[in-house]
């Protein structure tokens, strides 16, 4: 099975869906790159290089380089989705949602309900999230929780290259607006990724490590952290079941609850801030639906309620890591 990076897997998903369906277009800042200048138009492929090569294959009509106008990018994507295209819009950093929030929150998310089911909005917004690059407060946030809270939006947070390809193809074929969160520290991680196109359904979490003593729920880049913690714990005879959410909306409540019913303990690992987020949401879910099964309090291992700091020493302190997860597990296993 060929090994591919997450960047390659996403690029391949875009290419295969663009080949399959002429309605699929890519829209964003520098997605072709170099447009309007004398240099090589296909060289850039977005700041992360994810769309590289698409311009050469599909041309400017399908790989649409935009000005730095996030509101117009999102609005154009939403409007084109409602009228017959299947756009994949790239938002360089999810922090920039602040600039174009209205077009997601009040437009794309609402069309279907507000128009009585007569509109479909097959829009995908690909965006990056997460800390670790020293990009600080305006380029490092993990904002999927905000969008998970909005009815009408689906949120995908892949944890590896294989899932990224299957979930992105699913997102492009999905008739609802989907925000696809890519962790910027994961683009070069490799995984076995088939050459063929395939899908992964939304709302099905993946169990990535088995164990019977504690359930660790994680998502995106935190899945690696959780698995590392689980492997260390297993050396000491503590069995941790690690659940990779894959999508936060829809949320696979069943897999979480089934696991907690087995283990009686829950630790949620999330890189986002703790208030009103995924970790709090899942903790509340378990408290609400599986309280009698709990043998100990729920623990959340998240970033603190603070912006992402710049100094590497502070950023390291800010982020959850395996040691913090292990400490949380030990606290409740005793």
């Amino acid at each position: 099975m060929p090994q591919k990076t997450m960047r390659q897997a996403i690029n391949e998903a875009l290419r295969q869906e663009m080949e399959r369906d002429p309605r699929v277009v890519v829209i964003g800042e520098d997605v072709a790159g170099g447009a309007g200048l004398d240099g090589e138009a296909d060289a850039f492929g977005g700041v992360m290089g994810v769309t590289k090569g698409l311009y050469g294959q599909f041309g400017e009509g399908r790989v649409i380089d935009t000005p730095i106008s996030e509101t117009a990018i999102m609005g154009m994507a939403a409007g084109s989705a409602a009228t017959g295209l299947r756009p994949v819009a790239e938002l360089m950093f999810c922090d920039f949602m602040g600039v174009c929030f209205d077009q997601i929150l009040n437009q794309a998310a609402k069309f279907r309900y507000m128009f009585g089911g007569k509109a479909t909005t097959p829009l995908v917004v690909r965006t990056t999230y997460g800390a670790g690059l020293g990009a600080a407060a305006q380029h490092s946030q993990s904002l999927y929780g905000m969008f998970t809270a909005v009815p009408g939006i689906k949120c995908v947070v892949p944890s590896n290259a294989y899932d990224a390809k299957g979930l992105l193809i699913q997102a492009i074929r999905d008739d609802d607006p989907v925000i696809f969160f890519e962790h910027k520290m994961m683009y070069d991680l490799r995984d076995e990724v088939p050459d063929e196109a395939y899908t992964i359904p939304f709302g099905e979490a993946n169990i990535v490590h088995n164990g019977g003593d504690v359930t660790i729920v994680a998502l995106g880049n935190m899945v690696r952290v959780a698995v590392k913690a689980a492997e260390k714990l297993s050396e000491d005879g503590i069995g941790a079941e690690v659940i990779d959410l894959r999508t936060t909306s829809p949320l696979d409540e069943e897999t979480i609850l089934e696991s907690v019913e087995e283990t009686g303990r829950l630790v949620v690992v999330d890189e986002a801030n703790p208030r009103c987020g995924i970790a709090a949401d899942i903790s509340a879910l378990v408290a609400r639906e599986a309280f009698e099964m709990l043998k100990s309090p729920v623990r959340m291992v998240t970033a603190p309620h603070a912006p992402v700091p710049f100094a590497p020493e502070l950023e390291k302190l800010y982020l959850p890591n395996a040691d913090k997860v292990i400490a949380a597990v030990r606290e409740i296993i005793g």
């Binding site: 088939p194 063929e196 196109a197 395939y198 899908t199 169990i207 088995n210």
Partner: peptide
């Protein structure tokens, strides 16, 4: 096993 199930599902979800 978990992986046997995962492998089966991956197969089922392949285009075609």
């Amino acid at each position: 096993s978990r992986d046997m199930i995962e492998k089966f599902l991956r197969y089922k979800r392949t285009d075609g």
